[in-house]
């Protein structure tokens, strides 16, 4: 069985467009999911966990 983890989904045009409209200094704050997606997709093979959920970007309510 091939244990190679699947590549993470690519970011969509919509996601990349939104990020591009954001000042560079706020990209990390305002688009954490995009950053996570870009890391997983484009630092491929070195990523933490393909397909993991970015729960920590927003955890549940206190």
């Amino acid at each position: 069985m091939d244990q190679t983890p699947p590549r993470h989904s690519p970011p969509s045009l919509e996601v990349l467009t939104r990020s591009l409209r954001t000042p560079l200094g706020q990209v990390a704050t305002e688009h954490p999911d995009t950053l996570a997606l870009v890391r997983r997709r484009f630092l491929a093979g070195r990523s933490a966990q393909p397909g993991t959920v970015p729960v920590a970007a927003f955890n549940s309510s206190i």
Partner: peptide, 15 residues
Amino acid sequence: RAGGGTEAVGLAPAD
């Protein structure tokens, strides 16, 4: 869309 799921929805693993 981005993320492919959250803690609440989707099939991606929750690490």
